[in-house]
Design a protein around this nucleic acid. Structure first.
Lengths: 195, 195
DNA sequence: CTTTTTTCTGAACGGATGTTCAGTTAAACA
DNA sequence: TGTTTAACTGAACATCCGTTCAGAAAAAAG
């Protein structure tokens, strides 16, 4: 046996990425073998190397893709209004975006140490860009007298940690809708930074 | 060669745990081999099995030890005063405790999925116990009219996520002392739950 | 239909994995 | 001192790892 009936690069490629994402999120990058990913796709291990040069690149591409999507979708929303309105928009966006892709979030935050140094620097830069946007909002709010935080950098990281934490407990079948969760967190963020 | 000069169970045992903790935190449980741990201790891989039945128990003991220490040190502080005072005590304690043992925190939050199902349940139970203490404080504060949160369970998880996040960025050589960090976070927590 | 190209198989590579154990040696005990 | 005991070595076990590659087969092109 060799080439399977109905096989095509344009269908197998994405399936490899999806299987890798799901397995990395569930068991961790180091605990997942190329053979497991291949089995999930329904292919032999060697075939994976038509779609990725190696296992490391598979992880890097997943993380880069996640961060690129985050920054792109964020940039797509025209950030208007005062700092308070922009902070609410950021808060609700962050929760909605992260709850929609729990596996990618999990991998992006847990597998940073499994990136090669060069790849780590790239992903870290993207993350920094995202954080800088929130810090800019907090700075503007401080200048406008709307907010009162002792340290904008610390406040930025505190808010992001609080918001991202939602992915560790939220379940779709639970008692709260995404919008309700957004509102609960927004009220806490608003008060935490208020003047 | 066999038994090394100066060797003794009471010194090697703890050194195995220390090496495992450091390596697990740095590279992840699945990425660290028993031979690497042994090399760090200065011993052959087989010798590790005098101190742990297997690799899984090594991880479980580290995580249990961490959670036990957390609960024990927390219980040692007599929780007096009103809900506001207790919340401040909890906040400052949480930051101080976690910043003092970054490796154990990292492992305890990142390697949960590498625990066997039975071991996971135990560690999860300990974590729940700790969370329940914070939720009790929030409930009391709500009843006393000191706090105003829409959902005590969500607020509990949000506060803990925010506080624990400090371990991802704090460095001893940085510009802020632990006490300063405590105060910054306490002000944010206080405002976030205030009535 | 024939030829070319793309996709995949199946086997193989050297090396690493967790774990076991008979044997060796240093320390503790008598 | 001699004897026992605890700590460790070094080799071995079967199995898995990421990656490569010649060759087979299906799809696409002519």
């Amino acid at each position: 046996m060799a080439r399977t009936a109905g096989s095509h690069s344009e269908t197998t490629g994405p399936r490899v990425q999806e299987a890798a994402l799901r397995l990395f999120a569930q068991h961790g990058f180091a605990a997942v073998s190329m053979r497991q990913i291949a089995a999930e796709v329904g292919v032999q291990a060697g075939a994976l190397y038509n779609y990725t040069p190696d296992k490391q690149s598979l992880l890097f591409d997943l993380m880069c893709g996640h961060m690129d999507a985050l920054l792109a979708e964020r940039a797509a929303r025209g950030a208007g209004g005062d700092a308070l309105a922009r902070l609410e928009e950021f808060t609700r966006f962050h929760i909605r975006f992260h709850l929609a892709r729990p596996d990618a979030v999990f991998v992006s935050y847990m597998e940073l140490r499994n990136l090669s140094p060069g790849n780590f620097e790239v992903v870290e830069g993207l993350r920094r860009t995202y954080e800088d946007e929130l810090e800019g909002i907090l700075r503007d709010g401080m200048a406008a007298g709307l907010f009162d935080v002792a340290d904008t950098k610390v406040a930025t990281l505190a808010v992001i940690a609080m918001l991202t934490g939602v992915t560790t407990w939220y379940r779709e079948a639970g008692r709260l809708s995404v919008t309700e969760v957004e509102t609960i967190y927004w009220n806490m963020v608003r008060k935490a930074v208020s003047a």
